[in-house]
Design a protein around this nucleic acid. Structure first.
Length: 474
RNA sequence: GGAGAGGUGGCGGAGCGGUUGAACGCGCCGGAUUCGAAAUCCGGUAUGGCCUUCGGGUCAUCGGGGGUUCGAAUCCCCCCCUCUCCGCCA
């Protein structure tokens, strides 16, 4: 949610922000509705003030006359009734007018709220303007000693790599046909060492954040109410991405949704709270199953573990004081944790500055991390299906800086002393970043650590989480 | 799933359809007293919106939403949540 006051002061900034992000949002309509809303509100309020005043003045008289009415008869009774009716008529006359204004107000607010929920957070000034992911800008890349970016995997390692699909098949790590039988397209079953490796990565990533970097480990619901989805900014724009559980139709009070990221649960924890400023920043890490309908992605990445409906993800979230410099510093730090993790896993990767068109509605800035996947990209030789692929980067992480956009929607504030403290409240800032999403992260792990004999070396960092030093399928 | 009880300010806890945004107590802040502290006494202590000549004014908020009424924390309806007992279950 954007700040209505800022919108009033500088609508151009939001118009420009939406344009840069390539998102439709009727900023001008919102400004006009806001003006009408305030005007209507003022009229309704002054009338109500008058009504309240009258009710207070005439109330005791009505009470007294009503008391006398009980024992009155005949002409006296008729006189009293007329007197009461006369006194009541003055505030009653205001009532109708106030109700009319309130109805108008409700309509204005409902339309305004709908538009406000769709006005995106303007991108930061230093985010490159661009239409889509094509215009993202590489910031830096890293690879372990011995890897030459200018050469293919085959030239680097001396043998032609298998794709993760081939490795999963040959080593018995994933059963795709049975996954599809159970749950349809984009489904899979992790088997044996596939499941072991999956668990090893998640557990390593969890410990890495909790024990090495001091994040508080949490397990949060993945079935949430609509407010959590709207509050975190995934609704309304991402509604079709979420699995919807229609509980209302069965008589329950509200429907539920499956979350596509642990961010929803972690951020929703403190919805409508006033946190103690001294307790900030809050640093949380969770591992949760993520559900994504992948609507609109039909035909893309249909094979393998890349784009799937259900996966597990270790996610980090930071809620800090509302200070741009502090937000920026945390963004860097949260990216640092990920590059440290990927270096420990010996995975070549690069950081991408996302352009305005790729930010989504809620982010002021977003940095993606992509790992090198030798089995991705175009066919090495279109004539020879056995020649493999040229390799490409694949997105494995995404670090978002949201400022107060999310906390405003969640009504998540802070102040010195917290709930009962003193001083003004302010909406907190929030950030989030992937730590490890599996099984997607298994793709670079398997493909980069495969050996000429078809086995896969388990990187040292995972050794204490995996029973052997290699996966050989035997 | 069945039966019952209940949601009031930072906390506890009153509350009659009519100057109740809300008694009282605790906590917190300021002051007095004290060499200092405790105790005591006095005063002040919610949030949000809108307007403002920046003094303030005004509206809303007693779990949430709707209704009755000239007037609702109080009466009616729906929903959410918590607790107790029974049943079921991991």
């Amino acid at each position: 949610m954007i700040d209505l006051k800022l919108l009033r002061e500088d609508p151009g900034r939001f118009r420009e922000g939406a344009r840069k992000k390539n998102i439709d949002a009727d900023v001008d309509r919102a400004v006009a509705l806001d003006a009408r809303r305030r005007e209507t509100m003022q009229r309704a309020e002054s009338l109500r003030a008058e009504q309240k005043k009258l009710a207070k003045e005439t109330g005791p008289a009505i009470g007294r006359l009503s008391g006398r009415l009980k024992s009155a008869e005949g002409e006296e009774r008729a006189g009293l009734e007329a007197e009461i009716a006369e006194i009541k008529s003055r505030p009653a006359a205001l009532k109708g007018e106030i109700q009319g204004l309130e109805e108008t107000l409700k309509e204005l607010e409902s339309e305004l709220d709908g538009i406000l929920l769709q006005i995106p957070q303007p991108p930061d000034g230093d985010v490159p303007v661009g239409a889509s992911a094509e215009d993202n800008v590489e910031i830096r890349r890293w690879a372990p000693a011995g890897w030459d970016w200018s050469k293919s995997f085959e030239a680097n390692r001396g043998f032609r790599p298998k794709t993760h699909l081939e490795l999963c098949e040959d080593l018995g790590l994933v059963d795709f046909p049975r996954g599809v039988k159970l749950s349809g397209s984009r489904s899979y079953v992790l088997t044996g060492d596939g499941m072991r490796l999956h668990q090893a990565v998640l557990r390593y990533a969890m410990d890495f954040m909790a024990e090495r970097h001091g994040f508080a480990p949490m397990s949060v619901p993945v079935i949430v109410r609509e407010e959590a989805m709207t509050g975190t900014g995934f609704f309304p724009s991402g509604r079709e991405q979420a699995y919807h559980i229609e509980e209302r139709a069965r008589g329950a009070g509200h429907d539920l949704y499956l979350t596509g990221t642990g961010e929803v649960g972690l951020m929703g924890l403190h919805q409508s709270e006033i946190l103690d400023e001294e307790a900030l920043p809050l640093r949380y890490v969770t591992v949760s199953t993520c559900f994504r309908r992948e609507a609109g992605a039909a035909g893309r990445d249909t094979a393998g573990l890349y784009r799937i409906h259900q996966f597990d993800k270790v996610e980090q979230v930071v809620i800090c004081r509302p200070d741009e410099a502090e937000s920026r510093a945390w963004h860097e730090r949260m990216l640092g944790y990920v590059t440290e993790l990927l270096e420990s896993l010996e995975l070549p990767h690069r950081l991408l500055q996302c352009c305005t068109g790729d930010l989504g509605p809620k982010n002021a800035d977003m940095i993606d991390v992509e790992c090198w996947m030798p089995g991705r990209g175009e066919a090495a030789d279109p004539e020879d299906p056995g020649a493999g692929f040229v390799g490409d980067f694949g997105e494995t992480h995404s670090a978002s800086r949201l400022y107060d956009f999310q906390c405003r929607r969640l009504n998540l504030r802070c102040r010195p002393g917290g709930e009962g403290g003193k001083g003004a409240t302010a909406f907190c800032h929030s950030l989030n970043n992937t730590v490890a999403a599996s099984p997607r992260i298994l793709i670079p792990i398997l493909e980069m650590h495969q050996r000429a004999d078809g086995s896969v070396r388990v990187p040292d960092a995972l050794r204490s989480y995996f029973p052997r030093d290699a996966i050989s399928g035997k």
